[in-house]
Simulated assay, not measured.
Amino acid sequence: MKKYKTSEYKTDLVQEAAVAYGYQNFDDVGIFRLMDISQKGISFKIFDNLAKKFPFTMQDWADFLHISGKTLSRYQKEEKSFDILQSEKILQIEMLYQRGEEVFGSSDNFLIWLQSENVALGKTKPQDLLGSVFGISLLMDELTRIEHGVLA
């Protein structure tokens, strides 16, 4: 993974996972390669790099991934990889993060949005939707609306 100065630091889970699983060019990581990465399973180490970007607890992550906190701790201790469904969810959340950075111009602004009650989402905090594939899709759609100036 490329090293950045603190002010430029960016972790790209999808890029990191792509390299870890033998894909050298992130620009070519399409849906079939993401499926392949998911099938092989995201390692806890790669997941941990993503988790550090967010202000969520490990219990929050366990809830998003629909596993117990104890199971998540065991994955960490045993350096296990996640199953396909959990790996897909991790990749989807990473792609949401990347999209949020693009739309809001910084990770800080995106994380504020993610934790703030949102009228367009029925007064729900966007982070409360991360446990569902449909919720993540809704958030991606909302980011597109924000990008185009359609706020409600």
Rank of each mutant, 00 (worst) to 15 (best):
F56S: 00
T57Y: 08
T57V: 01
D60I: 00
D60T: 00
H66T: 01
H66L: 05
I67E: 10
I67W: 14
G69K: 02
G69F: 11
L72P: 02
L72N: 02
L72I: 05
Y75I: 00
Q76M: 08
Q76Y: 13
E78K: 04
E79R: 09
E79A: 12
E79V: 07
S81Q: 10
S81E: 13
S81Y: 14
F82I: 04
I84T: 15
I84P: 14
S87D: 15
I90M: 12
Q92L: 11
Q92M: 12
I93N: 02
I93G: 03
I93T: 03
E94R: 02
M95S: 04
Y97T: 03
Y97P: 02
Q98G: 03
R99I: 06
G100T: 06
G100I: 05
E101T: 11
E102A: 11
V103D: 12
S106F: 12
S106R: 03
S107L: 10
S107I: 06
S107K: 09
F110G: 02
L111C: 07
W113G: 01
W113H: 05
W113C: 02
L114Y: 12
L114V: 03
S116I: 02
S116K: 05
S116L: 07
N118P: 02
V119S: 15
V119I: 14
V119C: 13
A120I: 03
L121V: 04
G122W: 12
T124N: 07
